[in-house]
Design a protein around this nucleic acid. Structure first.
Lengths: 177, 177
DNA sequence: TTAATTAAGTTGCATTTTGCAACTCAAAAT
DNA sequence: ATTTTGAGTTGCAAAATGCAACTTAATTAA
């Protein structure tokens, strides 16, 4: 059975996961962020199988998250580096690293420290904020159909709010007919 | 061949991915954030296979990202809801949704709008910041061994900085001996 | 109270994906 | 010119995934 692709789903998260949600992919991106460029360095640092690495790099390049740059002009041998689109993903990587530090490793066991170069201080915790900078908890965030919403999505949103701070579905059982 | 688990790797990202990096898992979390509680609603909203959903939910509960709450006291039938650990993951989900809106769907096609309940305004873009609130680009972020760093990690960091803003590995080829 | 229906999973099987090792084939190094 | 590296393929065994059919337990309906 084919593994489902979300490429045609009207959902940013599904679309994103279609590009970076596979095993290894986010680790490859972190590795690239750390400065790794060469195939064999990705391979040895991550311990990933070569065929899988090859497939993932190809996919990341195809999606313009990594760029293949020839080592020397005209050379067949190339390096991989983050594109702007890929660099923009580092926010997600850092958010996830911080989550892991908080909930899995424990802050006192964080293996890597991320600091503000200007001050040497730890960077802030990545969090959701209002335009004016005020941190927002889940209860402060409202969800609405966006400009690209289709009927299916619009149907899923009502004004009602659950205690998670998100929306509640309309009961659809009775609408099937 | 067993699929590799990162559970024992000294790396917050790998550890995090070991919990939420599998196919469907992050979509299940988003679905829970949207208010879905019941097995069959997860199933029908996501179109995931039931056995896979079952396995994922078990794993999320085992990792205390979701909580199983009996529908009525003593009932075997239960609902799933985000734990605090799970709610803290929503930051990551939102960061990824925003990335998808920017780079995949295009902002004008964003299917969902996230707003500040207090003002009705769009929420801000999730980004990395210094403690004082200043937004940090990749070049402004420095990486160092953290309190839980082991030798392998410490060895990987030098002060040198690449143009991605991260660190550069020492050449290890000559150190093998 | 019994029968029918729904909810929440299992089980079995075909199809993919992974992981590993061994094998290419070009570019560098000696 | 020969060896050594880098960057992949290829082939195969073991898992994971998708699907449909099959259980149970809890609700609803009759």
């Amino acid at each position: 059975m084919k593994r489902i692709s979300f490429a045609d789903t009207r959902c940013s998260l599904a679309q994103s996961l279609d590009m970076i949600g596979e095993w290894w992919t986010l680790l490859i991106i972190r590795e690239a962020y750390f400065g790794t460029r060469r195939f064999s360095d990705f391979q040895s640092h991550l311990g990933i199988a070569r065929n899988v690495l090859s497939e993932r790099l190809d996919r990341l390049v195809a999606n313009d998250i990594l760029q293949r740059v020839p080592v020397s002009p005209g050379s067949k041998r190339a390096h991989y580096r983050l594109s702007e689109k890929g660099r923009d993903l580092v926010t997600v990587v850092i958010a996830l690293v911080q989550w892991g530090d908080r909930w899995v490793m424990g802050p006192e066991n964080a293996p890597v420290r991320m600091v503000d170069r200007a001050t040497g201080e730890d960077i802030d915790t990545v969090q959701v904020r209002a335009k004016n900078g005020r941190p927002l908890g889940l209860h402060d965030i409202g969800l609405e159909p966006g400009p690209g919403a289709d009927d299916a999505i619009r149907e899923r949103f009502s004004e009602a709010v659950t205690d998670t701070g998100a929306v509640r579905w309309r009961i659809r059982r009775h609408m099937a007919a």
